[in-house]
Amino acid sequence: MAHETLSRARRTIENTFGILAAKWRIFRRPIRASPENVERIIKACVCLHNYLRLMDNASYTPSGFVDKEGENGEIIPGDWRNTLASSGSTGLQSLSNVSGNRYCFDAVQTRDNFAIYFNSVDGQVPWQVNHVTQDSRTL
């Protein structure tokens, strides 16, 4: 059960960052800004992302755009991966491969802070639990 939860959490996080990188070009490379401005940029993009998902989901993330889990638990890659590959960017970099600088540490801290917040009661939105449990193909 714990392994399934971790796999589902990983798929959700990969989908989230993959969609953001596919839709918002700023996420296709390290953001060179102060940690405070990076946080503002990320929050603005997440707000716009959530708005577009609610208002025009069929166009913003059409069917098959996000990864999904097959009947046997295998991951079926979403089309956001093709969008990033065709742009010449992977979107997601391994933090261990990035040269040493403060941006990497700050990025990890920011990501972890967002994960903690969005997985807490304070970070939930009223429709979130129903939305996730009713349609596993969405964020």
Rank of each mutant, 00 (worst) to 15 (best):
L54P: 00
T16Y: 05
G18D: 14
G91S: 07
I19H: 10
Y51T: 04
C47N: 12
A107K: 01
E69L: 12
K43C: 05
G18T: 12
I116K: 13
Q93A: 10
R102L: 08
K23R: 15
V46M: 05
T90N: 14
V66L: 14
K23D: 04
E14C: 07
A9L: 07
V108T: 13
R25L: 06
I26Y: 03
A115N: 03
E4N: 14
G88I: 11
C45V: 06
R8D: 14
A58S: 13
P77F: 02
K43A: 14
D56C: 04
E4I: 14
G70V: 06
V46W: 03
R29L: 03
S120E: 02
V98E: 10
F105V: 15
A2N: 14
T138K: 12
F65M: 10
N72Y: 05
S120T: 04
E36M: 08
A58Q: 09
E71D: 13
G91E: 07
P126R: 13
H49D: 13
H3K: 12
E39Q: 13
H131R: 05
S96H: 08
L48T: 15
T83M: 01
Q93P: 02
R25M: 05
T110W: 01
T12R: 15
N37Y: 04
E71R: 10
I19W: 11
Y117L: 09
R11P: 00
V121R: 09
E14W: 03
R53Y: 02
T83I: 09
R28E: 06
S87I: 04
V132E: 03
